[in-house]
């Protein structure tokens, strides 16, 4: 998902405090920043919320790529609004992470030097306008699948950020599907572009949910802390079941010859993604991984003078006020 392969930190706290903490979580209490929490809970959440925030921010880049080339003024305004929302989502999440005692600058530095990750999906290129449709439809669709249950997560600031994000996310998916509908009802070439976008984004979208549960060693602790609400395979299955009929509506073919409805389980059987590709992308070897971090580094460096000038201006305003008194 936006937070993949989050390693749960081992905790070495007093067993009595731990038990009381777990009892609060089991009772459905929300944990707030000033409450006692196990160090492992704090560290795991910083990593998870941080990676989620980074994904929102880096996620602006593949779509930002098409703002200047949107096919109409209306599409441009819509895409601009969507990308601005992603920035907003990143900011809500950074603030939630900061309540755990990490600073914004530290989070940014950890993204830039590779200590923190962002979702594998944003290391793929957006080659045509149809990709804007596929990203909204599939990538935001997969994100919604994960984020809706996270509204009930045990950490208050994270849950509240998720509520806000989910309210806005539905627009993102629907504008993507709307682009796809336009494309498939256009010329033959436009329909081919739509099919090509689905072909390229299908498996990377399935990867967003992270490796299979049997390979996901950290799930158990995170699930009992309620910072992970569903298993990876469960959400992936739900995504496939929801998306396949939508592809049929568009008269597009899901690029999986073994995709088949399974009456017994009430869901589709499907081919999983190539996990070696996933691990490679996560390591920073995706087609656009270098470009993405370079873009973030450039924004950070180019923005340095603005950050400084703003502070200098604020200090000047303050001293002028003192002098006037």
């Amino acid at each position: 998902m936006y937070a993949q392969m989050i390693k749960s930190e081992a905790t070495q706290d007093d067993p009595e405090q731990l038990a009381a903490f777990q009892a609060r979580i089991d009772a459905g209490d929300k944990i707030e920043p000033k409450d006692w929490m196990p160090e492992g809970y704090r560290k795991t959440l910083i990593r998870q919320i941080g990676q989620h925030a980074h994904s929102e921010i880096v996620g602006q880049l593949p779509e930002g790529n098409w703002i200047t080339r949107a096919p109409s003024l209306e599409r441009k305004a819509i895409l601009l609004a969507k990308v601005q929302d992603e920035a907003g989502h990143g900011l809500y999440l950074y603030c939630a992470a900061e309540t755990l005692g990490v600073s914004r600058d530290e989070l940014t530095e950890m993204l830039l030097d590779g200590r923190m990750k962002y979702s594998s999906i944003f290391s793929y290129p957006t080659l045509t306008w149809a990709d804007m449709g596929a990203v909204g439809w599939l990538v935001d669709g997969a994100a919604i699948m994960n984020q809706v249950p996270l509204q009930r997560t045990s950490f208050g600031p994270y849950a509240r950020a998720m509520v806000r994000i989910c309210k806005e996310e539905s627009f993102h998916q629907r504008q993507g599907f709307d682009i796809m509908m336009k494309m498939v009802n256009g010329t033959a070439a436009q329909k081919r572009m739509a099919q090509d976008a689905l072909n390229r984004f299908w498996y990377p979208s399935l990867m967003m949910f992270g490796p299979s549960d049997s390979d996901s060693v950290h799930s158990e602790q995170s699930m009992s802390w309620k910072i992970k609400m569903n298993s990876n395979d469960e959400l992936r299955q739900k995504f496939v079941d929801q998306t396949v009929p939508q592809a049929a509506y568009l008269d597009l073919t899901v690029p999986d010859p073994d995709l088949k409805w399974n009456e017994d389980k009430g869901g589709y059987d499907f081919t999983g993604p190539d996990w070696s590709e996933f691990f490679d992308v996560l390591k920073g070897n995706g087609p656009c991984s270098t470009e993405r971090i370079e873009a973030r580094q450039k924004a950070w460096d180019d923005g340095a003078w603005v950050r400084e000038a703003r502070l200098a201006h604020a200090a000047k305003g303050h001293s002028a006020k003192v002098a006037a008194e």
Partner: peptide
């Protein structure tokens, strides 16, 4: 209360 943000001064 809806959340927090960083800014250099009140107007910002």
């Amino acid at each position: 209360h809806v959340g927090s943000l960083h800014a250099s001064d009140a107007e910002h």
